[in-house]
């Protein structure tokens, strides 16, 4: 895969507040990349710098190897789907989608043909003459995507595009966006604070917090092998336990030693251990290393969320098997369920 966009040491400050503290990121052709993080982490600013609405204070922004951080947005080969769509209220659906082509003085018949094809792609054929303000949120969303894609950009930027939609529609649009991305075969850079959205759509997830990139990886990587406490707690639910790495493949926490699959730490280094709630099994207390009492049981639909109070802490466990409160139980997990991370300073 070829590198399309490269961010080198990008920083940005707004009113004495440093929003980006040195972002280094490579974005490849045809990839679905998600910038994931809580609000204020700098993900939207990163997107706006790529779009050209904000200029970085320092650092390089390369597009196909050429520095573009000073290039105005109307000269960049990227298009944006805005958070609130920003469809022009004085134009109808057709005119909104045709806006970019009309600016380029494209021939009328070509415009008509392309708009029709775009409407077909986003499933809104026959909506040409509709007033954009009369459309539902999901339909406006589709018009916004069509309006951006018709310019055949090399990169489509999406700023929390599903934020305003209800849960069911979000699911549908997630699926559809992924489908559209595969169909047009261009890079999508997607900004969201919703970890589920990020995991289910992306090829690459970039987890951000506090102006820094915390981890870059595939969805399975960031979920299964979080690099630090922030990533582990932000993506999915997890039990985070302080421990000591005795040597490669052996970690100790809560008075016991456990076999694991992690390597590359110093002997006796302080580390943090992640145990995903769904990876812990409830077993009988005899012979189990960790034991505790069931503190609470909450029905969550697909599974139960069970809190087990052990000697040092409460463990969260997700299981489909019911277990009554007050019972003494043992906890079991395999070596591959233990994820060891660097301790955050």
């Amino acid at each position: 895969m070829n590198t399309l966009i490269e961010l080198n040491n990008i920083t940005k400050t707004f009113d004495d507040q440093q929003v980006l503290k040195g972002i280094n990121l490579k974005i490849y052709e045809n990839e679905f990349l998600t910038l994931l993080g809580p609000s204020g982490c700098g993900k939207t600013t990163t997107l706006r710098i790529i779009a050209g609405f904000d200029e970085p204070d320092c650092g390089e922004l390369l597009f196909g190897g050429i520095e573009i951080s000073k290039l105005p947005p109307y000269k960049r080969e990227v298009n944006t789907v805005f958070q609130k769509y920003a469809l022009f209220p004085h134009l109808d659906v057709f005119e909104n989608i045709a806006f970019g082509l009309n600016i380029k003085k494209t021939e009328k018949s070509v415009v008509k043909q392309k708009v029709e094809r775009m409407l077909e792609l986003v499933g809104l054929s026959g909506f040409e003459k509709r007033d954009v303000t009369s459309l539902s949120g999901g339909q406006q969303q589709r018009v916004a995507i069509a309006r951006a894609l018709i310019n055949e950009p090399k990169v489509l930027l999406l700023d929390e595009p599903l934020g305003a939609l209800d849960a069911k529609l979000r699911k549908e649009m997630q699926f559809e966006l992924k489908k559209i991305q595969k169909e047009v075969g261009i890079t999508f850079i997607y900004v969201t604070h919703d970890q589920e959205e990020a995991l289910s759509m992306s090829d690459t997830v970039v987890v951000m917090n506090d102006g820094y990139i915390q981890q870059i990886g595939t969805p399975t990587d960031v979920y299964n092998e979080p690099e630090n406490r922030f990533v582990a707690s932000f993506i999915g639910e997890s039990n985070i336990i302080e421990g000591v790495m005795i040597r490669d493949c052996l970690v100790s926490f809560d008075d016991f030693e456990f076999e694991c699959v992690d390597k590359g730490f110093k002997d006796n280094e302080d580390v943090e251990v992640v145990l995903r709630p769904e990876d812990i099994d409830i077993v009988s207390p005899e012979g189990a290393k960790l034991t505790g009492t069931v503190e609470s049981v909450v029905f969550k639909g697909v599974h139960y969320e069970i809190m087990v109070k052990s000697k040092y802490r409460s463990y969260m466990i997700h299981t489909t098997d019911f277990c009554e409160e007050g019972r003494r139980v043992g906890l079991s997990f395999g070596p591959e369920d233990i994820h060891v991370m660097w301790k955050m300073v």
């Binding site: 779009a51 050209g52 609405f53 105005p72 947005p73 109307y74 990227v78 298009n79 944006t80 805005f82 958070q83 609130k84 920003a86 469809l87 022009f88 209220p89 004085h90 806006f99 970019g100 600016i103 380029k104 309006r147 951006a148 310019n151």
Partner: peptide, 26 residues
């Protein structure tokens, strides 16, 4: 809404085109 102006830039309109096609119309 400033995002209309940004959307216009984003779609390739320069400041003059943005003024006549978006800002003035709105």
């Amino acid at each position: 809404d400033k995002s209309f102006i940004e959307a216009s830039y984003d779609l390739g309109a320069n400041p003059v085109q943005t003024f006549f096609k978006v800002v003035f119309k709105l």
